[in-house]
């Protein structure tokens, strides 16, 4: 288990957090204009890099707020 820095509460144990996957995935501005392929990508496809990854975390057992963190998916080390 590692410590994760909640921007609101400070460092807390990993078990207090819920993972939210890739950050910065915006809802399409005009969903009706999307092709089936574009819609499928929005719904199902997320980045899966080996290395630096901007991702969403929720301090589920603490302040319950969402935040964006940067973590390396190969080392699991948080950089921000």
């Amino acid at each position: 288990m590692q410590l994760i820095e909640c921007p609101y509460c400070g460092p807390r144990e990993e078990v207090e957090f819920h993972y939210g996957g890739q950050a910065g995935v915006a809802y399409p501005a005009d969903p009706a204009a999307l092709t089936d392929e574009e819609w499928g990508r929005f719904v199902f496809v997320r980045a899966n890099p080996k290395g630096r990854f901007e991702e969403r975390w929720s301090h589920a057992a603490g302040c319950r707020r969402w935040f964006t963190a940067v973590r390396d998916t190969a080392t699991y080390r948080f950089s921000r």
Binding site: M1, E14, H18, E55, Y76
Partner: peptide, 13 residues
């Protein structure tokens, strides 16, 4: 483990 990872290891909890 819940998070994306390529580390071939996970958390003990």
């Amino acid at each position: 483990d819940s998070y994306n990872g390529y580390g071939q290891r996970g958390a003990f909890h």
